[in-house]
C-alpha cells in the first residue's frame, strides 16, 4: 500500500511536464490499480475462503448447438440465471469458462440443480437438466457445469464436477 501511495504521489508531481493525453493515461493507470486493489479487497471481504462457492460453465457441445439460457438452483433456490448471446456462445466454444455464480454457503451438504436450454442445428429447443450434491467443507468449493455432447455420437447433456 505504501508503495502504491508513493507511486501515486510521484505521478502527481510528474504532471506538470506531461501532455494532457499522457496525464489522462497516468490517471487511468492509477485508477486501474486502485480498482484492482478494491476488487481484491472486496473479494476477500465478501467471499472468505471458508464459505466461498463458485460455479463455472464450460461448453463442450458441438458448435451446431447454441446455448440459449441457463438456470442454477442451490438447495431448490434459484441463485443464477444467464441468457447467452452469439458472442458469448463463441467465447464458450473457443474454450472460455464463464463464472456463473460466486457466493457463500455454510458448511454441510448442498444440492445443486441445473436447467439449460439450447437450440440444435434444426432450430429445435433442447432442455438439459442435471443435478448433484456436494459437501461444503471449510475450504472454498468450485464446481464446473459441463455441457457435453458429440455430433452424431452422444446426445447433449449437462454434468456437474468438482474442480
Amino acid at each position: 500500500m505504501g508503495v502504491i501511495f508513493l507511486t501515486l504521489c510521484s505521478s502527481v508531481n510528474a504532471y506538470s511536464t506531461q501532455s494532457i493525453a499522457e496525464k489522462i493515461q497516468v490517471l487511468k493507470q492509477q485508477a486501474v490499480l486502485l480498482h484492482k486493489d478494491l476488487a481484491q479487497l472486496e473479494q476477500d471481504l465478501i467471499y472468505p475462503s471458508a464459505t466461498q462457492i463458485s460455479v463455472y460453465v464450460a461448453n463442450k457441445m458441438p458448435e451446431t448447438m447454441s446455448l440459449g439460457s441457463l438456470e442454477l438452483h442451490i438447495d431448490d433456490v434459484v441463485v443464477a440465471r444467464s441468457v447467452y448471446s452469439l458472442d458469448q456462445n463463441k467465447a464458450l466454444n473457443l474454450g472460455g469458462m464463464q463464472r456463473l455464480y460466486i457466493g457463500n454457503l455454510s458448511v454441510g451438504e448442498h444440492r445443486f440443480q441445473i436447467v439449460a436450454k439450447a437450440v440444435d442445428a434444426n432450430d429445435n429447443v433442447v432442455i438439459l437438466k442435471g443435478q448433484s450434491a456436494y459437501y461444503k467443507s471449510r475450504e472454498a468449493l468450485s464446481i464446473s457445469l459441463n455441457l457435453l455432447g458429440a455430433q452424431g455420437v452422444n446426445p447433449p447433456a449437462v454434468s456437474l464436477t468438482r474442480l
Binding site: A58, A91, N93, G96
Partner: peptide
C-alpha cells in the same frame, strides 16, 4: 486467441479456471 482454444477442460485446477474465465471475457471482447 480465437483460433486456438484449450482442448481439454476436464482436468483444470482452480487457478486454470481463472485464466479460462479471463479467456471467456477476452473472446467475448
Amino acid at each position: 486467441a480465437q483460433t486456438i482454444a484449450p482442448k481439454d477442460m476436464a482436468q483444470l485446477s482452480h487457478s486454470d479456471v481463472n485464466y479460462n474465465v479471463a479467456l471467456f471475457h477476452y473472446f467475448n471482447n
